[in-house]
Design a binder for these strands. Structure first.
Length: 291
DNA sequence: ATTTTCTCCTGCATGC
DNA sequence: TGCATGCAGGAGAAAA
């Protein structure tokens, strides 16, 4: 389900629901007084089966801890608690929501009971998500996080040059490369096609044939499409919902994704579909010539 | 070693 | 209506 824009929108939704402070690189001097720090009264595990099992001691670890703020790294949500970090990945079908009394659904894996009576639910029908624990300050060393590439919206660490270096001499199709979270985080199947279209690059172009200008264009397109998607609240294709229940609108703005056979919005040539890594890939044969 | 394919799981749309 | 099939926004193991 969720790529970077959807995860970021969920993060903002949770932040809004909880009233917690936004993440900031330097929290010194930040006004904590303005922001509540909700207390986890009890973390209730209903089903531990996910891509990795939820640790048995997760309830014990989070008991009575305050939620300070919620951050994001790639497609991971990082719940910074008073002592420790809750690492959450939504996989393909995961969601967080505020679950009022009586709102119990099939595939609800976890309930977070907050002091004051509110309850957050993590639900993941396909179980590709993750809910793990890291010690404070050690989350970056976690094996799921330590090899992640740069944040595409972080202009100091992500650029055409940074992209080019990560691609190296790989002969893999560029679409596969930008979906590799070690190359750049947050890009999934939808935004990969969309970014390549905007950059005018054929998805099967080998990494080794990506020129400097092409890398610059692609880095800019990735940043642009992800930013626009966040501003639209993400993309809701089948069931994506933000934590506040709202859906995104960026799916109405797709230029190639899911538009197999429809006219290119730029040149009217029918959009085509191919499979790369068994994932549907869409491109315009005229606007995206192969490198 | 790198690259491609398969697999994990449920739900839903489609077609017979 | 019922059933089989394929596909879905991720990511890592297995196979090539």
């Amino acid at each position: 389900m969720p790529e970077l824009p959807e995860v970021e929108c969920v993060r903002r939704g949770l932040q809004s629901i909880l009233g917690t402070r936004p993440p900031s690189e330097n929290s010194v001097g930040f006004s904590f007084a303005k922001h509540p720090r909700p207390v986890i009264e009890r973390l209730e595990i209903r089903c531990r089966d996910l891509r990795r099992p939820i640790p048995k001691n997760m309830s014990k670890l989070t008991e009575q801890m305050e939620i300070e703020f919620i951050d994001r790294r790639g497609k991971y949500l990082l719940w910074h608690l008073s002592r420790g970090v809750l690492i959450s990945h939504l996989g393909m079908s995961g969601s967080w929501r505020l679950a009022p009394p009586g709102d119990e659904r099939i595939h609800d894996h976890v309930y977070i009971h907050l002091k004051g009576g509110r309850r957050l639910a993590f639900r993941d029908p396909r179980r590709f998500g993750v809910l793990l624990w890291a010690e404070s300050g050690k989350e970056g060393e976690h094996e799921l996080l330590c090899d992640l590439g740069p944040e595409p919206l972080d202009t100091t660490n992500f650029s055409g040059e940074a992209l080019r270096k990560r691609i190296g001499k790989s002969v893999s199709p560029i679409k596969n490369l930008i979906m590799n979270q070690k190359v750049v985080v947050g890009v999934g199947n939808i935004y990969a096609s969309e970014a390549l279209f905007r950059a005018g690059i054929h998805p099967k172009t080998r990494g080794s044939r990506m020129t400097h200008p092409m890398c610059d264009r692609l880095a800019n397109s990735i940043r642009e499409v992800l930013t626009l998607a966040i501003d639209s609240g993400g993309s809701s294709i089948r069931d994506y919902r933000n934590a506040d229940g709202g859906s995104g609108a960026f799916q109405t703005t797709f230029q190639v994704y899911g538009r197999d056979g429809l006219p290119c919005l730029n040149c009217s040539t029918p959009i085509r579909a191919i499979a790369l890594q068994n994932r549907s890939t869409y491109w315009c044969p005229v606007c995206q010539r192969k490198g």
